[in-house]
Amino acid sequence: MTHDEAQARWHERLETGAPDPELAQHLEACAACRAYTREMSVVLDALNTARRETETLPTAASEAARGPAHYRFGGGRWRLMRTAAMVALTCGAVYWAFAPTRPPVGTKSPIVKKTNAAHARTYGITLRGESASRQFAVADKASTEEVQVYWVYTSLTSKEDSEHPSKTKNDRSG
C-alpha cells in the first residue's frame, strides 16, 4: 500500500468508521503515514473544538433586538435619523413662532416703536437751532424710526416749512 492509498483510506474511514486491519498494519509499519494521521487528527480536533464553541452562538437574544427597521437601516442609523428629524422639526417650529417678532439688529428695545410719535416730537424741539453736524448725528441715531426721520427733516429746514406732506402725518401722530 502506498502513502497516498493509505491516506485516502484513512480519510474514507473517517466517514464509515469501519475497522480496516490492512490500514492499521500499514500505519504500524509506516512512520510517515503515522505522522500524517496524527497531524490530521490534530486538525480534526481543532475543528471539533471550534464546532463546540460555535454551537452556543447566542442568536436568541439578538432576535428580539433586530426588527425589520434595524435590518433595513441599521439600528444606530435609524435612531439617529429619527432624532435628527425631531430636532429639525423643533427648531423649525421655534423659529417660525418667534422669528417675526424678533427686533431688527441695532434696536435697543422694540418698545421704542410704540412711542414713535412722542420721541419724534421731542427730537424735533431739541434739534431746532442746533448745528447741522449735531443734527445729523441725532438724525443718524434716529434713522431707524420713520417718524423721527421726518422730524429731523423738518428741523433742518425752515420753521415755516409746514407745508411738507409729512406734516399731516406728524399731526396725526402727535
Binding site: 512512520a31 510517515a32 505522522a35 497531524e39 486538525v43
Partner: peptide
Amino acid sequence: LMSESHPTWFRAPAGSMETPDDA
C-alpha cells in the same frame, strides 16, 4: 496553514519514532 501559525501543535511527542521514510 495551522502548522505555520501554531507549529507546536504538530510537534511529534517526545520519544516518538516517527521519522519520514519512503515506505
